[in-house]
Write a protein that binds this DNA or RNA. Structure first.
Lengths: 345, 345
DNA sequence: ATGAAAGCGCTAACAG
DNA sequence: CTGTTAGCGCTTTCAT
């Protein structure tokens, strides 16, 4: 047998109707606070529902009404601090709006992406979707607009769709300039271009920002100084070792995420280098633990970004502002103890 | 207007049936690999479905079949490293099993918990649920068994339900004993008993383990040495300050999570104390960043726990082993550079 | 092997 | 203000 015995049959709308002595239509209306229901009736229905522990079946409602009261979120990685924080922000406002959250990670190739395709099982289950760091070329973003499912895009600037993002180019530039201002000339960069199956414009923009700061300081780009850290601590550690054990090691490193910077800190310790004495390190995010470890970084309001994205979503769903605008968010350089003036030896 | 125009009508099962020249019943069967469908027919149906980008509507299927192919996960906090890691493990196997994941955080009081109540909107949407660190008294766990929805409990030992957990008592004992072995006698503990609205037996078991190690060493318990750190970095920092600025500061601190230990490390730095010179610190989890910062800790296989929980779930759903067993998991003491012999001054 | 038809539990016109 | 009546899109007997 199937391991699922003891099925308790749940009360359905007919049971409530019977108990309250009204029709199912009235039950449906009363429970969803429709106007045109007598207070006495509403009360009677609610009592009956409570007594029966009745809760409308979400699937049936969805089928009948076309609304699922759940919004979907798609992100490339679920375990990064960044994604987690975004989700927390989203959850916060969705909870208040009584909406459920269905989370999906991007599986496989961009082509069978849950978001695309005129019909995807993911899409048909949600009233709207929040796309975190999912890359869009213009063609795809057009698809997105054509789609019937409202979307808000986080982490990318799109003008035909509601979107919000920070200026990644600027952030990387600020970080790099900070290092330059401290006298560093040989500055490494640890990025994350090769996450398998994932494309995002974040690494590209940040690389461009880093390079543009160097160019402004008339420093020639050195490809050997740019290493992939896969956006993980361990990846950052490995990348740092590669950089620091090279023939001309950098005196400072810019990391595209604080997690990678943590790995750099570890590598430095392992190699007996002091930070910031021998090596300056700056990250990106302002991870919850960054302060604890004195990591200089570019702060972005990650949780707040989640909140805003969710609010944009509820607004769209509520028929307010179908604003397909881009919402820019501010960032700030937070200088802590991991970066310091280049020591002349 | 409502912000949702351009609704593209999706192909439905009738469209596919029409295009393939068969009945909807046949389409349904063919697409779900039922036996008793001629190969030629199946092929024709599949081609039609592909051409139309057809995907069965999940809500309609659920309504008709009673199965949703999604499993729910409930956890008190979504943003802790621990929860994130569990989710990653769960996702990994669910993805392979083609099951969706619906995540819910525990809202409000235990009474209107998504998991309980004979009927909850959460429960009716999932085929099974994985409960992470949700506290159960015997009465509630009986409710859980009575329920028609299969459940697996992670983080607690329950014998009537499939469950898996580490031995929290032992872990805390190991950590404390490690500190005792290093000569420490005044050992602080930073726990997390007061998370609002959340109960879990984890803090209790770990407190008991800590106390039992002290008792074995004939050290009297000192309530002033036990402070709440809310399982966050900042909470750990505050708790540490309270402990270290007190009249008789400890020489070592056991934290119930690595994140709180990170906060302790920060506090120590701020107060000019060296670790492990002036203060030994040990955490719990083996957080991804623990190694990077040389934090001694009790390692538990968090992601693996997620995987196992999910596998247990798929097994139950598949009718294999409705094993209401408890699955114990191993832990290990990882001594790094944050703990050292008590220095006699 | 395939089709016809009866729902799954609810919502949404449309009457009254 | 409330009841009647169609479906929503799919699965599943029961026939054939």
């Amino acid at each position: 047998m199937s391991g699922r015995e003891g099925t308790t049959t749940h009360a359905s709308i007919v049971d409530v109707a019977a108990r309250a002595g009204v029709s199912v239509a009235t039950v449906s209306r009363a429970l969803r606070d429709h106007p045109h229901v007598a207070n006495a009736t509403r009360q009677r229905v609610q009592d009956a529902a409570t007594a029966l522990h009745y809760v409308a079946d979400a699937n049936a409602s969805r089928l009948a009404s076309g609304r699922s009261n759940t919004i979907g979120l798609v992100a490339p990685i679920l375990t990064s601090w960044y994604t987690t924080e975004v989700i927390a922000g989203v959850e916060e406002v969705l909870q208040e709006a009584e909406l459920d959250l269905l989370i999906s990670t991007r599986r496989g190739a961009p082509d069978n992406h849950p978001v695309f395709g005129p019909n995807s099982s993911f899409r048909q289950r949600v009233d709207g979707m929040i796309l975190v760091d999912v890359f869009f070329d213009t063609e795809r973003s057009r698809d997105l607009v054509r789609t019937s499912t409202p979307a808000v895009v986080l982490g990318e600037r799109l003008d035909q769709v509601a979107s919000l993002s920070i200026d990644n180019h600027l952030g990387a530039e600020m970080a790099t300039r900070h290092l330059l201002d401290l006298g560093h000339r040989r500055i490494g960069m640890i990025g994350g271009l090769a996450l398998p199956g994932i494309t995002s414009n974040v690494p590209e923009s940040r690389t461009a920002g880093y390079e543009s700061a160097l160019a402004a300081a008339r420093i020639r780009r050195d490809r050997a100084l740019q290493v992939d850290g896969h956006f993980t601590i361990e990846g950052g550690r490995r990348a740092a070792r590669q950089l620091l054990l090279g023939s001309q090691p950098p005196t400072a490193i810019f990391c595209m995420s604080d997690e990678m910077a943590f790995g750099v800190l570890q590598a430095a310790r392992e190699l007996g280098l002091s930070v910031p004495g021998d090596l300056s390190v700056i990250g990106f995010d302002d991870h919850t633990a960054a302060e604890a470890f004195g990591l200089s970084t570019i702060r972005q309001p990650v949780k707040e970004m989640g909140r805003i994205a969710a609010r944009l979503m509820t607004d769209i769903l509520g028929g307010h502002a179908a604003e397909a605008h881009h919402h820019p968010l501010g960032i700030a350089l937070i200088a802590r103890s991991s970066t310091a003036q280049l020591s002349v030896r």
